[in-house]
Amino acid sequence: MSKAEIFNTICTEIKKISENDTLNLTPETVIEEISDWDSLNNVDLEMALETECKISFEVGEFEELTTISQMATALEKKVN
């Protein structure tokens, strides 16, 4: 997967989870600052990404990633 593909995957999943297609997401978006985002959404996202990209996160690893671009970089490393 290329970085752009990964970025798109993350955005799609976030929109799916927050049930909001109109979100304006950029690489600099801080996940926790998305309106109405909570810890349940965060687990949903973590697990959705694990299934989509066929990887797994260690305990505490996902919490270190605060922005979409950090998430994409971490995923890119894991996928390839």
Partner: peptide, 20 residues
């Protein structure tokens, strides 16, 4: 405390239950 229990209790426990 919320940060700790979310990361080290809630998430691992929820993941251990299989498909969310």
């Amino acid at each position: 405390l919320t940060r700790f229990i979310t990361t080290y209790i809630y998430k691992p426990f929820l993941k251990s239950l299989g498909k969310i």
